[in-house]
Design a protein around this nucleic acid. Structure first.
Length: 202
DNA sequence: TGAATTAGTTA
DNA sequence: TAACTAATTCA
């Protein structure tokens, strides 16, 4: 299946039937598909998502093989990798991140669990690819809420941040230097750490 | 340093 | 939700 789903739809691999991630996708029509390759979701704006769960990471290095295949398989979609970052995966997160970002060159977004993932999926699929460049875009409440969960980022900084980087992906890919003039030095570091550094104890 | 902002608490 | 407050951050 190499065609992107129509607007408002999400193609979902059969193995996610009855999963919690689908319950957060309200207002989205979910089409189940057997042959989605390695991807777990296909979104209308030609985004493919591979979900690396807590179990995948803890189970060993098998996920790497899956990621490599994923990287090499579906070329007509923009490949995105959602990685569960939890207490259990904390110690492995840095390694997963390096592998995904540096070795494979894919975009990685950390999520706390399936609920958070569903918010991201809803947000990403609501992005109309034909309107991506419009200067003023309605702010998705879910994105705003998510961004405000970053330490040091409240209402004001979340708003200004999303004016410069309208999507989560853009915020994620922003460097500290790009972030600094927008949210200040301290928060710039915190935002970057939120997406790029493993959780630190203490 | 003063203003602005965050984040937690309370009603 | 709104208002208040302590602590932090910014210019």
């Amino acid at each position: 299946v190499n065609a992107a789903p129509p607007h408002g739809h999400v193609i979902c691999s059969q193995r996610w039937r009855n999963a919690a991630v689908l319950q957060g996708l309200k207002g989205v029509i979910i089409l189940f598909e057997d042959e989605l390759g390695l991807a777990d979701f296909h979104l209308p704006n030609r985004t493919a998502i591979l979900y690396v769960s807590e179990c995948d990471i803890i189970a060993g290095n098998g996920y790497k093989r899956k990621l490599v295949c994923y990287r090499n398989a579906c070329s007509r979609f923009q490949e995105l990798v959602l990685v569960e970052r939890t207490r259990l995966t904390e110690q492995y997160f840095s390694a997963v991140q390096k592998f995904v970002l540096f070795d494979l060159g894919l975009t990685l977004l950390p999520v706390g669990g399936q609920v958070e993932a569903s918010q991201l999926i809803a947000q990403i699929s609501s992005e109309n690819p034909f309107r991506r460049r419009t200067p003023r875009r309605l702010l998705e409440p879910s994105v705003l809420a998510l961004v405000q969960h970053i330490p040091g980022v409240g209402r004001v900084k979340a708003l200004t941040l999303l004016q410069h980087f309208p999507s989560i992906q853009q915020v994620c890919n922003a460097s500290v230097a790009e972030l600094e003039p927008i949210v200040g030095q301290t928060s710039a570091q915190q935002v970057h750490s939120f997406f790029h550094k493993p959780l630190v104890e203490h």
